[in-house]
Design a protein around this nucleic acid. Structure first.
Lengths: 192, 192
DNA sequence: ATAGACTGAATGAACATTCATTCCGTAAGG
DNA sequence: CCTTACGGAATGAATGTTCATTCAGTCTAT
């Protein structure tokens, strides 16, 4: 197997197992077995278990970012841009349930909380293209006059909740339902 | 110290530590130390670590239920009842951040997923007083014609998201903001 | 032949759980 | 009122297991 093939196998195995059993519930031995590599081989690609966890997050984050970015359509109305964003996000989360589970594990851990804190309070914002929609929405009076972070929670909160329930099989989000629920998210934040 | 005093100490210590470090990140030794009891003492009150986790959940669930139930006001409009419910829930979650953190840990674990599955698909529903608001809302045409579980996710999703961000210090939900955000939740599910 | 990739047994730390022992409040007996 | 004996509560060292990590040795491609 090629060098990159092994890294890929390790990443996929770790992602699957951590999504299912959480960080502490997944041992390096389990990852090695699922990836069909020796236990020591993982350490050729990731310095430690912590580095593996952080590395996997960065990979998933990057992929999600590309998805949201690619589909974002500039020079459209705030409403259109928001609906695009919500749709892309929801579809990504239900098309990549393992990634979604992993992100949830990550953000519920000390790793992820610190990460978000930096994203919100730090200077740099890779998320600008997302925040921009909200900043635009508020300044043009098309969204409610609430703090941006609250608008994010109001609209992304239900998307996460629904994606989670869909992935757990509690109901099915089909092509009929998805536009309706994203529209409902818009209703929550639009100005009346 | 009295018998119940020790059980109380153990429960509080476990709740605090698990909320902070998760199930696997919290050892029985850590709990014993924080509760100022011997490691073996925990096993006089809880059969195993698993039993402790389940027991704590039941205690927290009961307290939350009492809060929501006590404040629910019968024979009011669907809108009023929903706003009451949302308010009570949000206030509980930000007044009891440890309980909220614990519930999140629990529902993100195999324990909790199975628990929710039974709640949704099982026969008995202790949550009837909550579901009733949604059933009423849909049948009276005051809420959107979407599956009940989706309406729950639409309205409770953002409440959870906002409570989490508030508890992490990302923003502050004050008495001004809370009615506004609950109203926004209502906007997401109300019929136009 | 050599270098780098790979392996998995070995290691020591940390874990949940157990249990022989100690502690302590109570009540009977002096 | 004091002493003694009792039994449940509490303890924490000991146990066996599992973990992340290491490294001496093996393999493989050039």
């Amino acid at each position: 197997m090629t060098k990159m093939g092994k890294r890929e196998e390790i990443a996929r195995a770790a992602l699957d197992l951590i999504a299912e059993h959480g960080f502490h519930g997944t041992s390096m031995a389990m990852i090695a077995e699922r990836a069909k590599v020796g236990a020591g081989t993982i350490y050729r690609y990731y310095e430690s278990k912590d580095a593996l966890i952080e590395g996997l997050f960065k990979e998933v984050e990057l992929k999600l970012h590309e998805t949201l970015w690619n589909e974002t359509v500039k020079d459209q109305s705030v409403r259109e841009r928001f609906l695009h964003l919500g749709n892309s996000l929801l579809r990504y989360l239900i098309d990549n349930p393992i990634h979604f589970k992993y992100l949830e594990q990550f953000f519920n851990s000390p790793y992820g909380v610190e990460h978000r804190r930096e994203k919100i309070f730090g200077e740099e914002s890779k998320d600008n293209e997302i925040l921009e929609v909200f900043i635009d929405g508020v300044s043009k009076g098309e969204m409610k006059d609430l703090p941006i972070v609250i608008l994010c929670a109001q609209s992304f909160g239900p998307i996460m909740a629904m994606a989670r329930d869909h992935n757990l099989g509690f109901f099915t989000l089909d092509d009929d339902l998805i536009p309706q629920v994203i529209e409902a998210c818009w209703d929550a934040i639009k100005r009346k």
